[in-house]
């Protein structure tokens, strides 16, 4: 089984197609919608967690790409600059998914678990030293 959070961008020409439903019906994948937006020019953004067998997962992703959906794995888009981060903790209360956490209560080091990130961007605004970056779609 594989489970990954993905940001999907639908150009306006295809934003009325039921891709998420297809992932479920054609590829037997489970999806969990974390955020969905349709912009004034009809372009859509969808953040989902996609879960299923590796083979189905890969085929589902291919299917989306073949149909013009732009895909970004969220774990590839978030970075924390370890030179800048001084483990203050300002980011912790705003992270809704515990992607930013203190696990070791002795050292009190702030750690980033990319797999939990849903690209909400709150930490980027809150970080006092701008150590966190979230790359947007090109």
């Amino acid at each position: 089984m594989v489970s990954k959070k993905i940001m999907l961008r639908f150009p306006k020409e295809i934003s009325d197609k039921p891709f998420a439903s297809d992932l479920s019906r054609k590829y037997n994948l489970t999806f969990n919608i974390m955020s969905a937006q349709i912009f004034p020019r009809k372009e859509g953004h969808l953040i989902i967690e996609l879960i299923g067998e590796q083979k189905n997962f890969d085929e589902g992703i291919e299917y989306l790409k073949d149909n013009g959906v732009e895909i970004q794995f969220i774990e590839d888009s978030i970075t924390k600059d370890e030179e800048k981060c001084y483990h203050c903790g300002f980011c912790l209360p705003v992270c809704p998914t515990k992607a930013l956490v203190i696990e070791n209560r002795k050292t009190m080091k702030v750690e980033l678990h990319k797999e939990n990130c849903i690209a909400c961007g709150y930490c980027v605004k809150v970080c006092p030293v701008k150590a966190i970056e979230l790359s947007e779609f090109a």
């Binding site: 001084y86 483990h87 203050c88 903790g89 300002f90 912790l92 209360p93 203190i102 050292t107 009190m108 080091k109 702030v110």
Partner: peptide, 13 residues
């Protein structure tokens, strides 16, 4: 309620 720091204990050490 959850409590989080603002002062870096990590750097204090």
């Amino acid at each position: 309620i959850p409590a989080t720091p603002l002062s870096s204990y990590y750097m204090a050490v």
